[in-house]
């Protein structure tokens, strides 16, 4: 869906569901997912429908993901960090993570 205009800025290694993904400095979690061509980042807690980032400005809450073990983080507001572990969130969040 998206390509990078230029591979600028230092590469940052994160994992998404355990698989390595190369992000760039300046990426948010959500933009890193889009840049890596990842199709959806969660399924809804109501019907289990797949969702992906929609607004990228903190409004829609469709980019909720688990970041470093903490669920329901807004991916579009969180800058990537080296070694960050991102997981797609399936349905309702589990208490305690």
């Amino acid at each position: 869906m998206f390509k990078r205009l230029a591979e600028k800025g230092p590469a940052i290694s994160i994992t998404v569901d355990g698989k390595p993904v190369t992000a760039r400095a300046g990426d948010t979690v959500a933009s890193a997912l889009l840049g890596a061509g990842i199709d959806h980042c969660r399924t809804t807690p109501v019907t289990g429908a797949p969702r992906a980032p929609y607004c990228l400005m903190g409004v829609c809450f469709d980019c909720l993901v688990t970041v470093d073990g903490v669920g329901s983080r807004q991916g579009c507001l969180i800058p990537v960090r080296e070694g960050m572990k991102v997981e797609t969130q399936l349905g309702r969040r589990e208490a305690g993570r």
Binding site: G91, R92, R93
Partner: peptide
């Protein structure tokens, strides 16, 4: 007056 706090949806615990 009473106040209530409510969380996001969680798996049953």
């Amino acid at each position: 007056r009473g106040q209530i706090v409510v969380t996001e949806r969680l798996r049953p615990f």
